[in-house]
Design a protein around this nucleic acid. Structure first.
Lengths: 338, 338
DNA sequence: TTGAAAGCGCTAACAC
DNA sequence: GTGTTAGCGCTTTCAA
């Protein structure tokens, strides 16, 4: 079953290849008689014609392929985003190429370059660092790109994320309402926008609520180990905390490990909040109190934004912040009496 | 920064495009003088030349793209497979297209067809059902394809999975050794190879160990709800079980929910084993006793097998079963006295 | 060892 | 409305 080319379809329908092409192409179909369109479509179906998208791409310089760049698909934060993006992209006739950079800037640069060589129409990037060379390259080359989840400092691209400031506010206020006065913020790695905005929000809200005994410790990465290490250190320096606001769920798990290592119980001795509401944290014992982020929706909106860029061409870089919600669960409790 | 073409590189190096092409292509490089190769490579680097893979693909009719078909990227079983596959594929210069079929046969068929139209060089399929039309299409068209995790009945493709029979044996023997005589097997949906082979192994090993009070209940899908429902039903019919061997971790969680609903504690009243050792199950309380499957390795080997198919051409369909390991954790305990 | 030239399958600008 | 023509950027015979 060799592949059928357009010429064969045209021959079968008794028309010129150019005409067949127009008949099959929705955009150009109006310039063709109903008759011809029918005959060509008929022939195409009978012969099982499948257009060669490389030839088409070479001619039109559009591939109908979009790449999604994630740091680690194994991190439960990303699958819902992937899913959302793929859903809308497919509906629009695009194919999604997934690339996992293994959290390495160099891998990321290489992958993105390779993908550009492949003629990918645009990128959705979920790996943005605050200073990000890959993004800079993309910006210079004016490659249609949308950032999701995190953004870079330059702000040159549309961004779809969620309302970090509000999410952190919800956590801090919840804890303050429970009587906590001494709270630790376990922040993400400094070169990410999520870490920065959540940390800023923490400081601000803590001040608003008149919380004086408040610190921020940064984890080196969004990993459990990094979270445990940073929390352990902070706990050692300032043993007075009765609550921890972590910048992510995984970080929160690390914090819990650090607590357990010091013989502190959660939530009886120290309350902990996470961030993202990743799939499994509600199954833990106790289930994690956290901020729900509409991840799938983020993926969908990022894809839609990119499609806008691809079609319309227009666009003031959008900054889209989706609403978040506090999930009160088992890791927050009233501040212990001291 | 418009895209640099080969002609420009050739011009800069003072050679003919044909020569530049040869100089840049590892396969044909020997027919070119060292001098020229150096000059061309130099020019390519300086100009930032990135080959246009559509043009190349059009000429060579190879896209260097491989598609990986998963039922639901949100299921923690698949990300490690994706990761493993991507890793070896990238190293070999291939790009991975991920497609999520949302567990729907129809979606799957459409996606695969679209991808074929794109000229994808081969498929890695993680969605195989026992009777699978999409796979049949692929087989008829002789598209290079490798199955991972599950296989189909026809057996027409190489398959990379793990040793289900042994895994289930480990579970049953562990439970028998702990004194359990009455065990329920919570099987997966009947149209999947994993469900079938695990169920068969269960029956066989139970017989070998002289376990008489033994039943199998099939869940409609590999979801927690389906697991809970099937387990609840079985528990109602035969309340004598002291242990459940589930065909997957998620199913095991469903079983635990069913147990809890009847006021039974795990593991004090009923022991439970899972399957796959998906990322988070060791963090649950109690941590799940389960069978570790080398998922990432499966992805890697599937990719390697596909590369073999793509390069070498032929190959007797391989059936590769990776070794598994029992992770003794908190959900198994000696059978309660009755 | 290198240059010349043809062409992969398709689309779009131009003629008729 | 439809046919004609000229490439998109690359690889690969075939000559030189």
């Amino acid at each position: 079953m060799a592949r059928v080319r357009l010429v064969e379809v045209a021959r079968a329908a008794g028309v010129h290849p150019g005409t067949a092409s127009r008949a099959l192409n929705p955009e150009a179909r109006d310039g063709v008689s109903k008759q011809t369109v029918r005959r060509v479509e008929q022939a195409a179906k009978e012969l099982g014609y499948v257009p060669n998208s490389m030839a088409r791409g070479l001619r039109t310089s559009r591939t109908m392929v979009v790449a999604l760049v994630v740091p680690d698909i194994t991190n439960p934060l990303f699958p819902p985003i992937v899913r959302g993006a793929e859903h809308v992209l497919n509906a629009a006739g695009y194919t999604l190429v997934l690339t996992d950079t293994n959290n390495e800037a160099e891998t990321e640069r290489d992958q993105v370059r390779a993908l550009r060589g492949r003629g990918v129409d645009g990128f959705i990037v979920a790996t943005a660092r605050w200073e990000d060379e890959t993004l800079q390259e993309l910006a210079e080359a004016e490659v249609p790109t949308v950032l999701v989840n995190r953004r870079n400092g330059a702000g040159s691209f549309p961004f779809v994320g969620s309302d970090d400031r509000h999410g952190v506010r919800l956590c801090v206020e919840e804890l303050a309402d429970l009587g906590h006065r001494s709270i630790l913020h376990l922040a993400g790695p400094p070169n990410t926008s999520t870490a920065a905005s959540r940390a800023a929000a923490f400081t601000q809200v803590a001040a608003e609520r008149g919380l004086a005994d408040v610190y921020t410790a940064s984890a080196d990465s969004y990993s459990e180990e990094a979270g445990e290490e940073a929390a352990a250190h902070a706990l050692h320096e300032h043993p007075s905390f009765t609550a921890i606001v972590a910048a992510s769920d995984v970080l929160a798990l690390g914090a819990q490990a650090a607590l357990a290592a010091r013989g502190l119980r959660c939530p009886q001795d120290v309350s902990v909040t996470g961030y993202n509401d990743v799939d499994y944290v509600r199954k833990l014992t106790p289930p994690l109190t956290t901020v729900r982020v509409p991840l799938r929706r983020e993926g969908e909106l990022a894809a839609e934004t990119l499609l806008g860029l691809l079609d319309g061409g227009s666009s003031v870089p959008t900054q889209l912040l989706l609403p978040v919600e506090l999930m009160r669960r088992g890791t927050t409790a009233p501040a212990p009496a001291r």
